[in-house]
Design a protein around this nucleic acid. Sequence first.
RNA 1: CGGGGCGUGGCGCAGCCUGGCAAGCGCACUCGCUUGGGGUGCGAGUGGUCGGCCGUUCAAAUCGGCUCGCCCCGACCA
Length: 416
Amino acid sequence: MSSLFVPTLKENPQEAEIASHSLMLRAGMIRQLSSGVYIFLPLGLRTLNKITKIVKEEMDRAGGQELLLPALHPGELWKETGRWEIYGPELIRLKDRRDRDFCLGPTHEEVITDLARREIRSYRQLPLLLYQIQTKFRDEIRPRFGVMRAREFIMKDLYSFDRDFEGLRVSYEKMYNAYCRVFSRCGLSYKIVLAESGVIGGEVSHEFLIPADSGEEKFLVCPACDFGTTQEEAKCPNCGDSLEEKRGIEVGHIFQLGTKYSESMKAYFVDKDGEEKPLIMGCYGIGIGRTMAAAIEACHDEKGIQWPLSISPYEVVIIPVNWRKAEQRKAAEEIYQELKKRDFEVVIDDREFSAGYKFSEADLIGFPLQVIVGEKMSQEGKIEIKIRQNNERWETKKEEVLTLLLKLKEELAPKV
RNA sequence: CGGGGCGUGGCGCAGCCUGGCAAGCGCACUCGCUUGGGGUGCGAGUGGUCGGCCGUUCAAAUCGGCUCGCCCCGACCA
């Protein structure tokens, strides 16, 4: 850890009001550049990349193909769908040197539909699921809570193209299930609710929420059945019970768009019967940075972050309590090498700080597994292992550390 | 956009109301010793155009005007 760039803060930063924002700053994961614009430091980026990896694996599993669309969009495309006006001041606009209109993409329906209309000719090319993980720009009225509502943020967006509504339903369901897997694999409990589709447009839409008091999204749930919705006027269609209002963080949103964009942008294909028809579309988003913040909202205590193992920046920290004791240093180093060999993501706290300092910082950063090499090593050859999540502690012989860690890792892995 | 708050070494704050004494405290940082199972202890140091501009005054961190930035609540939004 002596060479890692992890600038931690002892005190609560003045600008942070909610736990995740404060802890991301304090644990040295992010820094603010400007209102709603954040730097991801090495530790923060590791978690971001882990979530990204899970998302990609699940998108691929569901038949998605990754591509990369530009962030810089020609204004004409947005004028074509009318969203140049509709999107309002939230759309960041700019002009090139020849005075042509451009904008920074807040979402990519226009660009993907433009691609689709140029490349998709036949029903034989369908269904098609294309996705990207990319930076979006939205000039929010009020950015807040750190990366939770930022003006520049990383999002996974997938677009589905089908020949008919039955196909759309199949694609939608695939995504619905993929989203369940994504959030489960991130170690999060989530709630799926019926949602309004807003400026994106379309018919059916569901939101994936992480329940949290600090969440900005209000939703109604039925305590008896599993029904949930964001719509105020909803009448519990499943059973007669009255709905409870709760708050959550919207980490994912899936939409059945239908022909909204394919009609307005003339994205047609030729169906089996020889007729030209509009592509039936769906779009599906996951806020990557927001998922990270939501995970911290859901998993923290007064000491710091309690990362779910699957998205923690590192899995294990090894803390030699007294760096001056050669046998502790040596044992720590040996365990480190052994774990490295078995592909653990591990760091060793090789700094000459006091034990308390290192413990506090390990808890702040939230390493799920902590290997503590202390006096018992010197005297009895024993190592302590602590689970951050529940503060469970295990003592074992040095030779057994790897075996125990493999077992604990297995136990901590989310069941999907 | 309406309402509220903040801006003083890297971080967290005091000082401002009631102008003047040397711009202070804690943390961090550097050096020395000390300590090493829950942010060790002691000592000595480094570092600040008090967000910016204009004004009032013999004198401005402090009073007035303008401005920039940041945060919170609301409306709005994925």
